[in-house]
Simulated scan of single mutants.
Amino acid sequence: MLVASVIAVVVMVGIARFSYTPMIPEMVAALGLSKSVVGMLATVNYAGYLTGAVLITRISDLGLKVRLYQLGLVVAVVSTVLMGYTTNVWLWFILRFISGLSTSAGMLLGAGLLMSWLIKNNQKSELGVFFSGIGLGIVLTAVTAELIKDPFTWDQQWVIYGLVALALLIPAWRWMPDYRACALPKRGQPLVATSAVDSYVSCNWRTSAPALAMWSRLPFWWLLLNPCPSFRGRAGWSGIAGLSATPACWLWDVFSRRWGQWLALYLAYTLNSVSILMLIVNTSLASVMVSSVIYGVSFIGIVSMMLAMVGRAFPENPSRPMSRLTFSYGIAQMMAPAVVGYLADVEGNYTNGLWLTLVVMALGVLMLHLARRAKEREAEPALSP
């Protein structure tokens, strides 16, 4: 089941979304695409991802979620293949938007369905293994790009990516469990077996009514500041980040289990800030590569731990709070390239954009700290005799 979930992430996130990164220089060289078109293709993909996140917040029917998750797998393959069969920019925009919808299905519906399955089957409600699929997907697209960039034209390369996705879709579909049997009772009813509750406690969470009530009142905007800097333009660099992110998901789960999720999140944010600061101080190849490794390790930890955190707090419908957090993620992905690009045009470099990223990162840590304090204050009355 876990293998099927990881493969699905590779298809719907790794290939459907990140295959565009190594394809940028190929399409620019072959077709002479302008920077504005290249940027817009990325933006509409983010827009599709954001739209999917919003729509998922409105869905509570488990059967519909499963059908949309399966549809996302098919759409990931089709939207990738069709990119190689047209040179119409508007059709590209539509395909990248649809691909973004598929990515939101893989990330959010997939994570929510997996969380429900883990709870229902008395397993540790952790998503580290699941999110390792992002890193694996980035590595797969980077390696594939190196293998096919010389023998094949840009349009053939898109088709090859789609065929790889199709090959992976088969085991992801065949090994997919019956998620419809994982429906959990609504809040206020008995939630899960004792062993599952014990697994919650081992992750520093409790499923008592006061704790759930507290989380329903906790302002989500305190958790929404999470800048997502990325390194674009070179397939090899994206592969380095993905390679480091792959084992990091599991390692962050181990760390948070031992030392607590709050400390793990603080550490992940600190490491992410270090990776940004390194690019400000030194832009040599060695510095960029080390920064990419640290970034890959830290960003996947922030994403997986934060989504798992809110997913455990709302086990009867984990996709909804996950989608709310992802909504802000999508906004940042749409806004940040435009803001940083403007600053780069004005200043002639990315230094000010990186400093701005560090400022937003600091605000995110502050919001995280406020959320922790609010949780502790809300929990005190429930713990008092």
Rank of each mutant, 00 (worst) to 15 (best):
L166N: 04
L166I: 04
A167Y: 15
L168H: 03
L169C: 02
I170S: 08
I170L: 04
P171H: 04
A172D: 06
W173Q: 05
W175K: 08
M176Y: 02
M176G: 01
M176S: 04
M176D: 00
P177Y: 10
Y179N: 05
A181I: 06
A181N: 05
A181L: 13
L184H: 05
R187A: 08
G188C: 01
G188S: 04
P190N: 03
V192C: 09
V192Y: 13
A193G: 13
S195K: 07
A196S: 05
V197M: 13
V197D: 15
D198Y: 13
S199V: 07
S199A: 12
Y200H: 03
Y200V: 00
S202E: 07
C203P: 11
N204Q: 15
S208V: 15
P210Y: 01
A211S: 05
A211I: 09
L212G: 11
A213P: 01
A213R: 10
M214S: 11
W215K: 01
W215P: 00
P219R: 00
P219I: 00
F220Y: 11
L223P: 02
L224P: 07
L224R: 15
P227A: 02
P227L: 02
P229H: 05
S230V: 15
R232L: 11
G233V: 12
G236Q: 05
W237I: 12
S238C: 10
A241M: 12
A241R: 03
A241Y: 06
P247K: 11
A248T: 08
A248L: 07
C249K: 01
W250D: 06
D253Q: 11
F255E: 06
R257M: 15
R258T: 04
W259E: 12
W259D: 12
G260M: 03
L263Y: 07
A264V: 08
A264G: 01
Y266T: 12
Y266D: 14
Y266E: 15
L267F: 08
L271Y: 01
I276S: 01
L279D: 09
L279C: 11
V281D: 03
N282L: 03
N282Y: 00
N282K: 00
N282A: 01
S284A: 07
L285M: 14
A286T: 08
A286F: 07
V288M: 11
V290A: 13
S291H: 02
S291D: 02
G296C: 06
F299W: 10
F299E: 06
I300C: 03
G301D: 07
G301Y: 05
G301W: 01
G301T: 12
V303P: 06
V303M: 09
S304G: 09
M306G: 10
L307H: 08
L307V: 07
